[in-house]
Design a protein around this nucleic acid. Sequence first.
RNA 1: GGCCCUAUAGUUCAAGGGAUAGAACGGAAGUUUCCUAAACUUUAAAUACAGGUUCGAGUCCUGUUGGGGCUACCA
Length: 593
Amino acid sequence: MCPMNVELHVKQKVTDCVKALYGSEDAPLQLQKTRKEFEGDVTLVLFSLATLSGKSPEEAGAEIGEWLVANVPQVAAFNVVKGFLNIKLSNDFWLAQLAQIAEDESFGRFPPSGKTVMVEYSSPNTNKPLHLGHVRNNLLGYSLAKILEANGHQVIKVNLVNDRGIHICKSMLAWQKFANGETPQSSGKKGDHLVGEYYVRFDKEYKRQVSALRHTGVAEDEAKRQAPILLEAQNMLLLWEQGNDDVFDLWEEMNGWVYEGFDATYKKLGVSFDKTYYESKTYLLGKEIVKEGLKKGVFFKKEDGAVWCDLSDNGFDQKLLLRSDGTSVYMTQDLGTARQRFSEYNFSELIYVVGSEQNYHFQVLKVILKKLGYAWCDSINHLSYGMVELPDGKMKSREGTVVDADDLIDDMIATARETSLELGKLTDMPEDEQQQLFRMVGLGALKYFILKVDPKKTMLFDPKESIDFNGNTGPFIQYTFARICSVLRKAREQELAPSVGAADLGEREVELVKNLADFPQVVAQAGTEHSPALVANYAFELAKEFNQYYHDIPILKEEDVAVKQQRLALLEQVGKTLKTAMELLGIELPERM
RNA sequence: GGCCCUAUAGUUCAAGGGAUAGAACGGAAGUUUCCUAAACUUUAAAUACAGGUUCGAGUCCUGUUGGGGCUACCA
C-alpha cells in the first residue's frame, strides 16, 4: 500500500463494508481527518449513510465500525459520537507508514505525469524598479512552478518583459529633459531605480502642465489629453514603432540599465526563468494577428482608423486593438505573445501569474483568441492574485508610494542579522557562513510572510511593523529544522543511526506520522489549486507539532536504544519533509541558526 | 452607473456543507541546573447585518452595508 493516502485507503475499506452490509456499490462516502479532541484517525460522516441504510446514524456507525474492526486488520478501534464514526488505525499501520516514508527518497514528489505546463510570471515593465507587488508575483510564480514540478509536470518558467509602450517612453522623455546625462555609472545608482526616478519625474511634470492648462480655462479632460509632455511621449512611441534611430538607441540604453538592475533583484530573490520574452519582439506578430482578424471580419476599423473588437455578444464592451495612429496596445502584444508560445512549445497549459486587477484583460484575451479560432485558448489559465496593500491604500509607482523590493530585501536581511547577533549563538561560525545565514533567514521571513496567504486574497503590508521572526513565520520553520539537524549531528557523533521498526510508536509519535503522511496530498492540492499557501500552512503545522513533541519527549536521553533510534528516524523524516515543503516555496533551511 | 472580488479575535492569517470556528502577533501569567528559549505552557478575545436552502451554514442562495478592483487610444 502506498503511504500517501490514508483517507483513500480507509475509504476503500468502508466502500467494501457498505457493500457488504447494505448492498450499495457507490454510496457517497464522506471521510475527513478526525478532530483532535476525539479519539481516532479518520472519521466517517454518517448522515447520508443513515438515510441509505434506513437506520439511525448511531446504529449505522456502530455496525460499520464493528465490521471494520472484524475485517480490516489495520483498524484497531472505533467510536461513534453523534453522527460521526471515528476510526482508529493500529500503531502497526502508522509504523508501516513511517517506514515507507523513510524509504521514499522523493517523498512528496510525484512521478512524471507527461504533462508540460508553461508558467509566466514576473512580467515587469522596464520603466521602474520592482516593488512589493512584484515580489508577491515573483514568489508565487516561482513557487507555483516548483509545486507543479513536484506534481510530476514538466514546467517552463517564462518571463514577459513589457519593454515597450507609452509608459517606457515617459521615462525616456523625462530622462532626456531632466537628467543632464545622468547614468548608473555617473551616479552610482542601480539602473532600474534611476529609470524609475524619471518615470516619477514625468508624472510630476505632467501634473504640473495639466494644472497650468486648467488655470488657463481648459477643461480637465481636455487638459489631460493636451498636456505637451504627454503629446511628446505619444510622438516618441510613434517614432519608436517607426524605427527612429535616436529613439531606439536611447530605448536600448535605458532598458539595458534596467535589465542589469532586475537581474540583481531576481538573483537576490532566488527566482529564475527558462526563457524571457520581450514585447518589443512579439508586438509585430500581434499587429499581424489584428490584420488577419480584420480580414476575417472578427475586428473592425472605426472612422479614425483605430481597430476594435466587438465583444457585446460575450457580455463585454468593445476592446481596442490598435490606436488610431496605428500603434499597438497591451492586448495587441499579448495576442502575439500567446500565439508565439503555442507555436514554439508543446504544452497543455499556460498559466499567467498576474494580479487580479487584470481579470478583465485575461477574460477578454481568451474570448478574442476564441473568436480568432485558436483552439488552444482553452488551455490558458490566469492565476489571479490579490494586491498588496499598504495601510493607507494601494501602491502607486507613478506617485512613488511603493515599497521597493531591493530596500525591503535589504531590510529583512539586516533585521535577521540584528536578531541573530542579539541571540549570540553564532560566535564560532565563520563570517561568510553568517552572511549566508542572515540572507537565508531574512528572505525566509519575507517569502513565508507573503506565500502563507491565499494568493487570491489581497494582503496587507505595514512597513512600520517589520515582518515577524517569531510565531507563524519562516524563521520558526527554519529554527525547527536547525534543531533537528543539531540532534541528528549529535546522534552521529554517538554513532547512533536512525532506524524504524524495532520499537512501538507512542501516541505523540503517531500524531507526527499522521502529519507526515498528509504531505503528498497537500502537494497535490497545492498543484491543482495553484496555492503555495497550502504548503506553507502545512509546514507550519508540522513544525509546530514537532516543537511540542521535542519539548516533551527526550530523544538522545532516551535509554531504550531501539526507541531512541526510532525517534531519530522520525526526526529525520520530519526534517526531510520540512525541507521539501520549504523548497517548494523557494525557502532555504539552515542546519544551524 | 455597470461588472467582478472581498468581509472571521485589537492586528495579520486558517478552516475540502459537518462535531466545541483554529493559529500567530499584541495583552495577561508562567517554563532555561534538561537534545538550540527564534522554543514551550496557561489565559482573555471573532464569523458585518437581515432573510433563505439544509438533518447541519463562516462556507451555498438573495438582499443590505462597508472595503477593493475593473469599466483607458496605461500596462
